[in-house]
Simulated scan of single mutants.
Amino acid sequence: MLSEQSVPVVRATLPAVGAAIGDITELFYRKLFEAHPELLRDLFNRGNQANGEQQKALAGSIAAFAGMLLERPDARPDAMLSRIAHKHASLGVTSDQYKIVHRHLFAAIAEVLGDAVTPEVAAAWDEVYWLMANALIAVEARLYEEAGVAEGQIWRRMEIVERREESPDAVSFVLRPADDRPVRPFRPGQYVSVQSELPDGSRQIRQYSLSSAPGRSDRRITVKRVQAGGQPDGEVSSWLHATANEGDVLTVSEPFGDLALADGDGPLLLASAGIGVTPMLAMLDHLAATGSRRPVTVVHADRTPADHAHRREQAELAAALPGARLHLWYEEPGDEAPRASAGRVDIDSLDLPDGLTVYLCGPVPFMRAVRGDLLRRGVPAADIHYEVFGPDLWLGQR
Rank of each mutant, 00 (worst) to 15 (best):
L2I: 09
P8N: 04
P8G: 01
L14I: 09
P15M: 07
I21G: 10
D23I: 02
I24H: 03
L27H: 03
K31V: 13
L32W: 02
H36C: 13
P37I: 14
E38L: 10
L40H: 04
R46P: 04
N51S: 03
G52E: 07
Q54D: 05
G60R: 01
S61W: 15
S61M: 15
I62K: 04
A63M: 15
F65H: 01
G67F: 10
G67T: 07
M68V: 01
P73K: 02
S82D: 15
H86M: 08
H86S: 09
K87E: 10
S90I: 00
G92C: 10
G92Y: 01
T94G: 10
Q97I: 10
Y98M: 13
R103T: 15
H104M: 08
A108N: 07
I109T: 06
L113H: 04
G114V: 03
A116F: 12
P119A: 02
E120M: 14
V121W: 00
A123H: 06
A124H: 02
E127D: 07
Y129K: 05
M132G: 07
E140L: 08
Y144D: 00
E146Q: 13
V149W: 13
V149Q: 04
A150R: 05
A150K: 04
G152V: 02
G152E: 02
W155N: 00
M158S: 01
I160Q: 02
I160H: 11
E162G: 13
E162R: 13
S167I: 12
D169W: 12
P177N: 09
D179Q: 03
V183A: 06
R184A: 11
R187F: 11
Q195A: 12
Q195G: 07
L198H: 09
L198K: 01
P199W: 15
Q204T: 15
I205D: 09
I205Q: 02
Q207D: 11
S212N: 13
R219H: 03
R219F: 03
R220W: 01
T222A: 14
K224H: 11
K224C: 10
R225G: 06
R225V: 08
Q227K: 13
A228D: 13
G229Q: 04
G230H: 11
P232S: 00
V236F: 06
S237V: 11
A242Q: 12
A242T: 14
V249W: 14
V249K: 10
V249P: 02
E254V: 08
E254Y: 00
P255K: 00
F256L: 01
G257Y: 04
G257F: 12
A260P: 10
G264N: 06
P267F: 08
L269H: 06
L269F: 08
L269R: 13
T278G: 12
M280D: 11
L281N: 00
L284I: 03
H286I: 08
A306K: 05
A309F: 04
R312K: 15
A319M: 08
A319T: 07
A320F: 04
G323N: 08
G334S: 05
E336L: 14
S341F: 03
G343H: 08
P353N: 03
G355H: 03
L356W: 01
C361W: 05
M367D: 12
R371P: 02
L374F: 01
L375V: 07
R377Y: 01
P380D: 10
P380C: 08
A381P: 10
A382V: 03
I384P: 14
I384E: 10
E387W: 05
G390H: 05
D392K: 11
L393N: 12
W394M: 15
L395F: 14
Q397S: 15
